[in-house]
Design a protein around this nucleic acid. Structure first.
Lengths: 188, 188
DNA sequence: CCCCCTTAATACGGTTGCGTATTGATACGC
DNA sequence: GCGTATCAATACGCAACCGTATTAAGGGGG
C-alpha cells in the first residue's frame, strides 16, 4: 500500500496535526500526550516513538503552523499583481472566512503569549502578513512610513475582526462589513 | 485599623485581584489555588475560607473585570459630549496605553474563549464598547447601519493594535500610529 | 524468508493541583 | 478581657499527566 492514507499506524505528522487541533481548541495547555493519544485511539506509549517529549511535539506543531500561515500561505495573494485588487482580496477573504467559527490557532496562541515558542510563532506570521500589506500600500503610492503604519492598522483590524467573530454570537452581515472595511482601508 | 490596607490578613478581594493578575499572565489555567497561595505568601488552606472552590474565584474575578472594563470603565469617555473629541480620545488612549506591555486580561481570555465564563465576560465588555462606538458614529452623522459596521471595524482595529503591541517587540512610534488611526477612523 | 525497525501496549514512579478535615491563631464586638 | 468570627497551617486522599522502562506485534528490505 504505497499511497493510501488510511493506514492503521500513525506518523509524526498525525501527532502534529492533532496537536494543532488541540491548540486551536484549548491553547498549548491542551497539548497533552495522554488526551491526544485517547483521541487518536492509541495509548501514549506510541507517542514516544515519534517524539522525545511533549516539548518536541509543540515545537513541531508550531513550526508547521508558521510554515503554512507565513509566506507560504500568503503566496496566493502575493501573486496578485494589481495592489488594489490584492488588498480587496485580502480584506474580503478575511471578513468572510471569519464566520465558520473554526477555532483559530492564532487566537489560542494569543492566550499563551508568555510562552516564548508561541510568541515567536505569532510574531513570524504577523511579520509576514505585515510585510505583504506594507508592500501593497507602497505599491498603491503611499510613502514608506505611512504605508507601514497604515498596514499596521489594517492588519490590526483584520485580527480584531477575527477576535470579534470568534466571540460574538451575533453574526453581522459580512457583506456589509466587507464593504465597510474596503471603503476604509482602500487608500484615499 | 478602620482604613489602612496593609493588613497582614487577606480578603476575598485580594484573592480576586491576584486571580486577575494570573489570568492576564497565563489565562484561566493560571488561576491555580496553590500557586496563587504561594505568591500571596500563604498556604491554600486559607483560600477555602474565602471561596468554596476554584470556580467561584474565577467567576468572582471575571465579574470584577467585566464591571471595571464594561460601562463603568467607559464612563469617562461617555461623558465627553463632542463625539469627534470622544472618538479621538478613545483611539489615542488605546494606541498609547498599549505600550506598557501590561499583560492584558482581555487577550488572555481570548485564548480561553471555549470556556463559557470567559466567552461571556469578553462578550459583555465588547458589547459595551461597541455600543459606545456605535453611538459615537451615529452622533457624527452616520446612518445607523453604517455606524454599526464602522464601529465594529474601528473596535476591531483597537483590539488588533492591542494584540500587535503585546506580541511585537518592535515598538512602532505611537504618535505616528495614533495619527494614522484617527485619520482612518474619524469619519469622512 | 527472516531479521530488525517502527509502532504500540502496559506498568510504574513522580509531580502538580483540587478539595476536605482538623486544628491553631488572631482580631474585633461586647 | 473573653468568646466567636475569620483567617491560616497541616495533612490527607484523589485525579491528571509526564516521562521511562519493558515487552509485544507487524511489515518491509536484505
Amino acid at each position: 500500500m504505497p499511497v493510501g492514507n488510511e493506514s492503521t499506524r500513525l506518523s509524526a505528522q498525525d501527532w502534529a496535526r492533532a496537536a494543532l487541533k488541540a491548540i486551536a481548541h484549548g491553547g498549548l495547555a491542551a497539548v497533552a500526550v495522554e488526551p491526544l493519544a485517547r483521541t487518536l485511539g492509541v495509548t501514549k506509549g506510541s507517542f514516544y516513538a515519534h517524539y522525545r517529549n511533549r516539548d518536541e511535539l509543540i515545537t513541531a506543531a508550531l513550526t508547521e503552523w508558521v510554515r503554512s500561515h507565513g509566506e507560504a500561505g500568503l503566496s496566493q495573494y502575493a501573486a496578485i499583481t494589481d495592489p488594489a485588487q490584492r488588498l480587496r482580496e485580502l480584506l474580503t477573504t478575511v471578513v468572510h472566512a471569519v464566520q465558520p467559527l473554526a477555532p483559530s490557532v492564532h487566537l489560542s496562541l494569543l492566550g499563551d503569549r508568555n510562552d516564548p515558542r508561541a510568541q515567536d510563532a505569532v510574531r513570524q506570521v504577523n511579520q509576514a502578513r505585515l510585510d505583504l500589506l506594507t508592500r501593497t500600500y507602497r505599491e498603491l503610492g503611499l510613502p514608506p512610513d505611512r504605508a507601514a503604519s497604515r498596514a499596521r492598522v489594517a492588519y490590526a483590524a483584520i485580527l480584531g475582526l477575527l477576535h470579534l467573530a470568534q466571540t460574538d454570537p451575533a453574526a453581522p452581515h459580512s457583506a456589509v462589513l466587507a464593504d465597510e472595511a474596503t471603503a476604509i482601508f482602500l487608500p484615499s
